[in-house]
Design a protein around this nucleic acid. Structure first.
Lengths: 349, 349
DNA sequence: ATGAAAGCGCTAACAT
DNA sequence: ATGTTAGCGCTTTCAT
């Protein structure tokens, strides 16, 4: 009869720091020092310890480490659910990717949190319960800084400026939407167009406000009338509606700046139906550099945002904040205008 | 002179279980029982404890809990970097959202992990180091089951079937791509079209293979020739190229089934240039129900996948797996055909 | 430069 | 039904 000696072969018990210490013939404290990169350890001993770690395939236990050090090494990425269309918006997707990739090279771990209205209390508790070292808030809609207050308790970095910067001392990373919109509009003006309209975004969201402002500034600077404005909702359907209203108002429109590419895409079929050739009759520019812009015909001129860099920038800022560094409250990244066929660019551009 | 008594006002020290026990006048064990919903506690005592928790605003410390219970309550969501286009693919974005939202109602926390080739070792170590209770793997490209082996050490659920199911006993959630493609193709056939082509996806990815198979089955069943096949790469550009090759091969094509919407979108301009009206001359159907399908003109007929449900399904399956339940290795969800203008559907459809 | 020892806040037997 | 008591695996003074 065989004797079953491994009654409790449940989990192949991971090697502990103590086992490493034993194998290396040193104390646990020393192993800890090596693992945490302390300089006060002899190269010889370090090598010894590393060999033991290698041999045992040791991996530090996060929970224990966190419990003892009173740091979690966890960063929360909060996505307000309303915004969670976020996910189907390639721009945000890319921001999130930037965050994740950046953190991969640190020893912070990323916690993805969808914060719905209903769970907002739970979310607050979680954040304040000492479960994370800091938080990143990604949102477009409304420049949702409802988490702003938490900022005094917990390091937080926002994606996008707050709606009312004066009342808000939060940290954020953003692009200069005003300048970018000005530049796109300036491009349309440089084409010789004079009746340039804009389909703006919702005026309760910073990007909606800023891009409209940029358009207006460019028009004013060129001495052109800035009356052709319609507000859309950033969706293709709203873009289609808005362009319809604009054409009804003024048939002489010869260019349009859309606050985002989705709305521009929605407007394409309408322009075609109404017999307006792009860019012949009407030049078009959008914003976001949505991948769909290259699938359209003609391809869409747009403003490119360094989305994954924005994400990386947010993560980097938060890491510094957690480390106790002092830094600028705002960090602005630059955009680039991508000229394609819809404003006379080359087919291959 | 004022006396600074709060020298160490660093962190407002969170309340501990012990403090709650003290306030409630019970032992720590009892508090723990209440917190964890044990039934073996008197309603009176439970109320007492809850009051204390409320009063102190107590939140359990995850690290301590995890250390003591040897469970982490963390689930990793692994996104192979190659796949990380994943993020700009609305389908995956939606799957991820489904996962996150589902887990929000459990007490599992989601760890987002971008696994690059270079960091794959690090990722493995992390997963096996007892830092998570289970993992979810999302990927399209190649049906990347390179994590399959980990499945024996750690509960894992995959999104999408493995490339070679016979050699693989992993758990996965997927849709029946073959049946869905058959249905879409059947729809084109029912329109009376007879020269129906397909632009398939890469043949080293399960969806690429399966959707081609579905098309072929439908064609064969209807007694139609199944020779009009071109392989694309799921991108708009590849769709444009493929449709060009098809038209060069056979000018009599009267319908095309694309393995995804992105390729169909890329083909639209080409069809227009070549003077083929959609759906008049050529009926078109895609796959994925990409939002861009409604921005196209004519709107695109496509196969809708229950993406967020797929995510939720994956999460649910993993949670059960972790709990030790036994379950089916595969879970198939159903798709729906969305008929729009490109195959004769109503404009508003 | 290294070791000893005291917890970090909680869960889980085991007692009662 | 509730309390006692060991730890979970690690970091971190404090000695040496």
């Amino acid at each position: 009869m065989t004797i079953d000696q491994s009654e409790q072969a449940t989990t192949p018990q991971a090697p502990t720091l103590e086992m490493v210490a034993h194998v290396a013939g040193v104390s646990r404290a020393t192993v800890s020092r090596v693992v945490n990169g302390s300089t006060a350890v002899t190269p010889q001993v370090t090598a010894l310890v590393n060999a033991a770690i290698e041999k045992l395939n040791y991996v530090p236990n996060r929970a224990a480490r966190s419990l003892a050090s009173r740091r979690t090494n966890v960063i929360a990425l909060i996505v307000p659910e309303q915004t969670s269309t976020v996910f189907s918006d390639p721009f945000f997707a890319s921001v999130i990717q930037g965050v994740a990739v950046y953190l991969n090279d640190t020893d912070y771990t990323l916690n993805l949190l969808i914060a719905s209205e209903s769970s907002s209390d739970k979310t607050r508790r979680y954040l304040l319960g000492g479960n994370v070292d800091g938080a990143l808030v990604v949102s477009h809609h409304s420049g949702d800084h409802s988490y702003t207050r938490l900022g005094q308790k917990l390091p937080i970095v926002f994606g996008g400026r707050p709606l009312t910067p004066e009342l808000d001392d939060s940290y954020f990373v953003d692009v200069d939407n005003v300048a970018a919109a000005r530049s796109a509009t300036g491009h349309l003006i440089s084409l010789g167009r004079t009746r340039i309209a804009t389909v703006a975004g919702p005026q309760d969201m910073p990007p909606g406000v800023d891009r409209l402002r940029g358009w207006r500034e460019a028009m004013d600077a060129a001495g052109l009338a800035d009356d052709l404005v319609e507000i859309g909702g950033f969706s293709p359907a709203s873009g289609a509606d808005a362009i319809g209203r604009l054409l009804d108002r003024d048939a002489s429109i010869d260019a349009v700046f859309f606050a985002n590419d989705q709305m521009a895409a929605g407007a394409y079929p309408v322009l075609r139906e109404r017999g307006r050739a792009i860019p012949g009759d009407i030049a078009v520019a959008g914003f976001d550099d949505d991948p769909l812009g290259t699938a359209l015909s003609p391809t869409l001129t747009t403003v490119h945002q360094p989305s994954s860099e924005l994400g990386a920038g947010m993560a980097a800022a938060l890491v510094r904040l957690i480390a106790g560094d002092t830094l600028e409250h705002e960090q602005i990244m630059s955009t680039t205008l991508v000229i394609r066929e819809s404003s006379g660019g080359e087919p291959t551009a």
